[in-house]
Design a protein around this nucleic acid. Structure first.
Lengths: 231, 231
DNA sequence: CTCTTGAATAAGAGCGTACTTAATATTAAT
DNA sequence: ATTAATATTAAGTACGCTCTTATTCAAGAG
């Protein structure tokens, strides 16, 4: 019996037609059913392939409207941010960690903004340094909402980083991420063993569970850090 | 008749159990079939939900191994990089564009590295400035592989940016993206109307079709630029 | 000549069944 | 005891059918 057509086969065929411009940006593709008939498979198989193409931002699908090649293609990239320790270790380096500071303090304006608060609040602030092969790697300045995560008060953050504890113990609903560049001030330069004024890559992440804020962290990377994504 | 259970219902139920730690990181979930029975739907409905959870990096699935909550959860974020003009316009600003330079030149070392070439090659280099409300927004330094894209020689890049022309006319297979920070040198400072030495956020993107390189572009953003992603 | 209403359309989703595949566990053979 | 063959398991995929839903288009009402 002839080998069955898989949804990947359908994906490849349609993708190829888009790549060789048989279907150009903006063009309308045949209905799923017609493609199914042409390729000799079920409609659901075509749908599976089409969903993939759609999720990758290659085509756009609308009910009744049909399927179109995106008129302005996008590069859709996905990246994972996990525990810093893993990032270091999977690069084959030795990870270590230093707790710099831990205090209860009123949230400053930038933290309020990240959480969308209107009034300052007492929160737990944790400053820590992640090292890769004994070299400074990432300095993290974290604020944890103790209303939402009271248990963190009892955690020994000398041995377990807040990063790791939160990831394991506080699942979140949604997150806000932002990336930008910042000049090293005296404080960062000292901690990261970098020159004053050097450009540093910064990642900010704020997480919530429902509407309750969990934590916001500003991760300042050491000079030369690159965030890399392959598609 | 009772409303049918949708795959989103299943998704929500399982997701909620993960969020409230009924299933903690590392835990094994029941088989799809058992979940289907419990919730009163077909296995395929559970599978649809599970695939979503899996694609979002919340659970991991292995044949025979079953489904587990990721032992180290990740923040999986997706972002689209499209035509700079759209980015500006969808922020409600006026877009404009200036061609700074266009030349045929031997590819320098960093471009060779991006493409994985061992010997320099003649390529088309295009320098251009994207403006938002008449203010410098992104400076792009682009190298186009004329072996792969000979037609670009005949394009009038004064009116149409290479960015846009390539996106519309040269579909690509896969791309390499990297983000980092860089201090403004005299050249960038001048073009972007920025202070010398200020930290600039840089995005590099290299695209291929099959194994044939298409283009590599270094987009240097003006001070204060942030890449934002919501999950 | 708009605006509303209703039919038509194409994608989205659900179900049940059957078969495939990768990974693990068990058993047999060395 | 170690390895190789085999069975078992749970996810992955395919199919055909039915029904739902968002959109569009066209006809009819104001």
């Amino acid at each position: 019996m002839a080998v069955r057509i898989t949804w990947q086969d359908v994906y490849d065929k349609i993708h190829k037609r888009i790549l060789d411009s048989s279907y150009a940006p903006g063009d309308k593709l045949p209905r799923d059913e017609d493609i199914a008939q042409e390729l000799g498979c079920a409609r659901s198989t075509v749908q599976r392939a089409m969903r993939e193409l759609s999720e990758e931002g290659i085509v756009e699908r609308r009910r009744k409207g049909g399927t179109h090649v995106r008129s302005y293609p996008v590069t859709r990239a996905t990246f994972d941010i996990s525990v810093t320790r893993h990032e270091v270790e999977s690069a084959g380096k030795v990870y270590s960690y230093q707790l710099i500071n831990r205090e209860i303090a009123k949230s400053p304006r930038n933290v309020m903004a990240a959480f969308g608060l209107t009034a300052p609040k007492d929160m737990l602030r944790i400053e820590a340094l992640h090292l890769s092969d004994r070299q400074p790697y990432i300095y993290e300045d974290r604020w944890v909402c103790t209303d939402t995560v009271p248990e963190i008060a009892n955690v020994d953050l000398q041995c377990e980083s807040a990063n790791e504890w939160l990831v394991l113990n506080r699942p979140y609903d949604h997150a806000d991420l932002r990336f930008y560049a910042q000049n090293a001030d005296a404080y960062h330069a000292d901690l990261l063993d970098a020159q004053l004024g050097v450009a540093l890559f910064v990642m900010e992440r704020t997480t919530w569970i429902g509407t309750a804020p969990i934590t916001t962290v500003k991760a300042v990377t050491s000079p030369g850090y690159q965030l890399i994504t392959r598609t």
